[in-house]
Amino acid sequence: SKWSPSQVVDWMKGLDDCLQQYIKNFEREKISGDQLLRITHQELEDLGVSRIGHQELILEAVD
């Protein structure tokens, strides 16, 4: 995926409302499409996504 960080942010805006709070962290870390495809629970935790349910929603959406 050749998504830029801004495309990742646009994609996140289409996800569940409960995930919108994390967008600024993804933006700050400039998460690209390639990074998103390989993202782990630990990396999500580092991005402030501490709730497992929220991590799962992001990982499922990526899949």
Rank of each mutant, 00 (worst) to 15 (best):
Q42D: 07
E29V: 11
L57Q: 09
G53V: 12
N25I: 12
V49Q: 01
R28M: 12
G48Y: 00
E60P: 01
I31H: 03
Q20H: 15
D46T: 13
D10F: 07
S50P: 07
Q21T: 11
L47M: 12
V49H: 00
R28N: 12
L19E: 03
L47I: 14
D63M: 08
G48R: 02
E27N: 05
L37T: 10
I23G: 07
L19P: 04
K30Y: 07
L37A: 12
S32L: 03
E45W: 09
Q20P: 02
I31E: 02
S1K: 15
V49E: 01
E29S: 13
I23W: 07
E43D: 15
K30H: 13
D34A: 15
I52L: 15
P5R: 05
S32F: 05
I58H: 08
D46Q: 14
K30E: 11
L47D: 01
D17A: 10
L37F: 08
H41E: 12
N25S: 13
G53E: 15
C18W: 00
R28V: 10
S4E: 06
D34Q: 14
E43R: 14
D17T: 11
T40F: 00
M12C: 03
W11I: 00
E29D: 12
L47K: 04
D10K: 10
I52G: 12
G33S: 04
E60V: 06
V62M: 05
Q42I: 05
L44P: 02
I23H: 06
E43N: 11
R51A: 15
Q42C: 06
K30C: 11
D16Q: 08
F26H: 00
D16A: 06
D63R: 15
I39N: 04
D63I: 08
V49G: 00
F26K: 01
L47F: 04
L57K: 15
Q20N: 11
E45Q: 14
S32E: 07
E27C: 06
F26M: 03
S50H: 15
D10T: 09
E56D: 14
L59H: 04
Q42G: 09
V62W: 01
L59D: 04
L36S: 01
L59N: 03
R51L: 14
F26G: 03
Y22W: 04
S6M: 13
Q55W: 00
L37H: 10
I39L: 15
M12V: 08
P5F: 10
L36G: 01
M12Y: 07
Q42E: 11
D34M: 11
Q35H: 12
L36M: 07
N25E: 10
K2E: 08
V62Q: 02
E45P: 02
W11M: 00
G14D: 11
R28G: 08
S1W: 09
V62S: 03
G48I: 00
L47E: 02
L19R: 03
Q35G: 06
S32G: 12
G33M: 08
E43H: 09
R51M: 13
I23A: 14
V49Y: 00
G53H: 14
R38I: 05
G33T: 04
Q55G: 00
F26D: 01
H54Y: 01
S4L: 06
V9T: 11
E56H: 11
K13L: 09
Q7R: 06
E29F: 10
L37M: 15
V49P: 01
H54Q: 00
Q7A: 09
G33L: 06
L19N: 04
G53N: 15
L59G: 04
K13S: 09
D63P: 02
K2H: 15
L44T: 02
G53W: 10
R28Y: 08
E60K: 14
K13P: 01
K2W: 08
V9P: 01
M12H: 02
V8L: 02
S4G: 11
